[in-house]
Amino acid sequence: MARVVGQGVSVDLLIEDLGADLEGRSFEVAKVGGGWMLRTRSAFAPAIRAAADLGEHALDLRECDVAVLAAITYHQPITRDGLKDIFGKEISRDLIGRLHARGLIGTGPRSPRGGAPYIYMTTEQFLVAFDLQSLQDLPDREQLEEAGL
C-alpha cells in the first residue's frame, strides 16, 4: 500500500480513513495476521450464507476436529507424535487432512534430515475463520483448563 500512495504516508491513517468511509456499510477493514483485509461485516453473514447456499456452518467441524485443532493451536508447532502425546492415541491422517483441506492448518518447515516429521501450525485462514487478529486473541489456556475445556 505504501508503494501505491508513496513513501512517508501513514498506512495506519489510510486504513483508519477507509474504515471511517465504510462505517454503516456491509464491508469493514479488519486486521488479520499482521495485515489487513476487506471483509463482509458479520451482521451480513446470514444473508451471504443463504445466498451462497453454504448451509448453517461453513466449517462443519466434527468434535474430534475441534479438539485436534485446539491442540495444534495451543501447542504449535507440533508433530503427529506430539498430538499422540496429548491425546494418548494416534491422530489419523484423514483428520489432519480435513483440517488441512479447510485451510485451517498448514505444515511448517521440516528438519533437513531424511524421515523428519511434518510439523503442524495454524494458518491465516484459521485466524479469518475464527475472527482473530492474531493468536494473541485466543482465550488463555489456564482459563480454558479451569472451565474444564
Rank of each mutant, 00 (worst) to 15 (best):
M1N: 11
M1Y: 04
V5T: 09
G6T: 07
V9A: 09
V11A: 10
D12A: 14
D12W: 09
D12F: 12
D12E: 14
L13V: 11
L14M: 11
L14H: 08
L14A: 06
I15Q: 11
L18T: 02
L18A: 15
L18I: 01
L18K: 11
D21C: 14
L22D: 02
E23R: 14
G24M: 04
R25E: 13
F27N: 05
G34H: 05
R41Y: 08
R41C: 13
R41G: 13
A47V: 09
A47R: 00
A50M: 08
A52N: 04
E56A: 13
E56P: 09
H57A: 10
A58R: 08
A58G: 06
D60G: 12
L61H: 00
R62H: 13
E63N: 03
E63M: 04
C64G: 06
V66W: 02
A67K: 09
V68Q: 02
V68E: 01
V68G: 04
L69C: 03
A70D: 08
A71C: 12
I72R: 03
T73F: 07
P77F: 00
I78D: 03
D81T: 13
G82I: 00
G82V: 01
G82Y: 04
D85H: 14
I86N: 04
F87R: 12
G88W: 06
E90Y: 00
I91R: 06
S92H: 02
R93I: 15
L95P: 05
L99M: 03
L99T: 03
A101R: 00
A101S: 15
R102H: 10
L104T: 07
I105C: 05
T107R: 13
G108R: 03
G108A: 15
G108W: 01
S111P: 05
P112G: 09
Y118K: 07
I119D: 04
I119M: 10
M121A: 04
Q125G: 06
Q125D: 13
F126S: 01
L127D: 08
L127Y: 08
F130A: 03
F130C: 01
Q133S: 15
L135Q: 04
Q136T: 11
D137K: 06
L138S: 05
L138K: 06
R141T: 08
R141N: 03
E142W: 08
E142C: 06
E146H: 07
A147S: 10
A147K: 04
